[in-house]
Write a protein that binds this DNA or RNA. Structure first.
Ligand SMILES: [Zn+2]
Ligand SMILES: [Zn+2]
Ligand SMILES: [Zn+2]
Ligand SMILES: [Zn+2]
Lengths: 273, 273
DNA sequence: GTCGGTCAGAGTTCAGG
DNA sequence: CCTGAACTCTGACCGAC
């Protein structure tokens, strides 16, 4: 009853409905059509993993129980042609196994269906470019304040050697990074709240705030890695990390970063962990 | 009305209250808070089955309709945080139709707090006492028939030593145990069908028969253990088992039990397995 | 109105190819 | 790796009170 677009007749005959894909015995409806468990599982995996297939023959392969695994392209195509509904594939769920504590994939985002989603990528790129533009003007002020040279994080310095690089890139301290972080946060907040960032436009202001809370710290970390790669990725045995203020921290000199800390009363070496 | 601690405002606005957990449309209150049926069912199952969950992420998972199944820990935690009341989850209800499939505990029912329910225990005790009374009068006839001394199973013989005990307790044989079993079965059947056994009064005669079929063999085994403990529990290295006829069988003399078997034409040693 | 039971159809696990 | 059998879990539906 869930979907009355089902292709097999409901129950005019007493014959058990067959799988609309491979004509094996069906076990009820799956994703809107009568199908066997095997075809249902195949369809779910294909949709959830966004798999793409190719036919090695003429895209007219037979799909019957004995041979249904010979061509995945034609099997998947027949699933779609027979009306199996991609939107009925849901998000991934919690693990049944309590020992299984790690994230399924820490590097991919998931859309409303819980699938890795790349459709937003161009919009995100566009938003990041706008963000970079706002930032480089704002950092001009910060650089003037600290008497160091301005450095545009939007440029890749692959062609420069380490000595030249370090003339442009200031060393970070806690207070400079804090100023930078505050500015970054304000900028990102404005971007998100003022509808410049495309994917967020569809959300209510309240939801955007929540999202920003979740997002900003991860974004900072991700961008730290990204900028480190852009600045030092071509240097072998790099021991420096870029921060959001456009400065760097040498890993064996982390204590320097906390040396001018004003609002954390603790041993800088200990804070560095 | 049930709980006025409900978090959503009652109905000052005409806006339908949302689920306090996932913000889906709510269908009234459940366990004290406005919630959707899905979250209510999830909460009920989790409490009733005493489930425990773990978060695979950072315990801040979003709980919205499309992704609420990604983290059961955070969903359950949000149920509690939003005020859903664990004590409002009731006991498992009896189900006539249910086979002995996979109840969390096949032998215990649970009360509103999810604890094993002991309210029936006095009734059961009372019923067992009645049963013992009927039995002891009936066994009087059996004992007279077999010329052995009468033995009341309702007494604990802890104070007696083994030699004294064995003067009172007859050794079982197949025929005496068989008579005893027949009598026991009739007694139990009468008790159950004649409304003497309190918890069964609420069932239809047909259901009582079914229950008796399932119950009697387990009851026999349980009582065997119980009587063995009462009779020999204080004797170290006990090698004797009490049977329902009030007699005992020595474990390395099981063949004796079958020695007067009249309706089984087989080697007593072989029957003992 | 809100409780629990039910079960089709979602998702997960894992041995075997 | 992919497949599919065997499993658990979810939530719409229903009856009980
Ligand atoms: Zn099929
Ligand atoms: Zn093909
Ligand atoms: Zn909900
Ligand atoms: Zn979580």
């Amino acid at each position: 009853m869930p979907f009355c677009n089902a292709i097999n007749p409901p129950s005019k005959t007493f014959v058990k409905p067959l799988c609309v894909v491979c004509e094996d015995d069906s076990c009820g409806q799956h994703f809107g059509q009568y199908s066997c468990k095997a075809c249902a599982a195949f369809f779910r995996r294909a949709v959830a993993s966004k798999m793409t297939f190719e036919c090695r023959f003429d895209k007219r392969c037979d799909i019957s129980p004995r041979v249904r695994n010979i061509c995945r392209y034609c099997r998947y195509q027949k699933c779609l042609d027979m009306g199996m509904n991609q939107n009925a594939v849901q998000a991934f769920r919690d693990s049944y196994d309590k020992r299984f504590t790690r994230s399924p994939s820490a590097s991919l985002s998931y859309n409303a269906n819980g699938h890795a989603d790349m459709r937003r990528l161009p919009q995100l790129f566009d938003g990041y470019a706008k963000f970079q533009h706002l930032r480089s003007t704002s950092f001009g002020m910060l650089a003037a304040e600290s008497n160091s040279q301005s450095w545009d994080p939007g440029v890749i310095y692959r062609s420069l050697d380490l000595e030249t690089l370090l003339k442009f890139i200031p060393q970070s301290t806690y207070s400079s990074a804090k100023k930078g972080c505050h500015m970054e946060t304000s900028l990102a907040y404005d971007m998100i709240m003022e509808d410049h960032f495309a994917p967020f436009s569809s959300l209510t202001p309240d939801d955007r705030k929540k999202l920003f809370d979740q997002f900003s710290v991860f974004f900072c970390n991700a961008e730290k890695s990204y900028n480190t790669y852009k600045a030092f990725g071509h240097i072998e045995n790099n021991d420096k990390v870029m921060l959001a203020d456009g400065g760097y921290v040498k890993l064996d000199e982390v204590y320097k970063y906390y040396v001018d800390s004003i609002d954390i009363n603790a041993d800088p070496e200990h804070l560095a962990r």
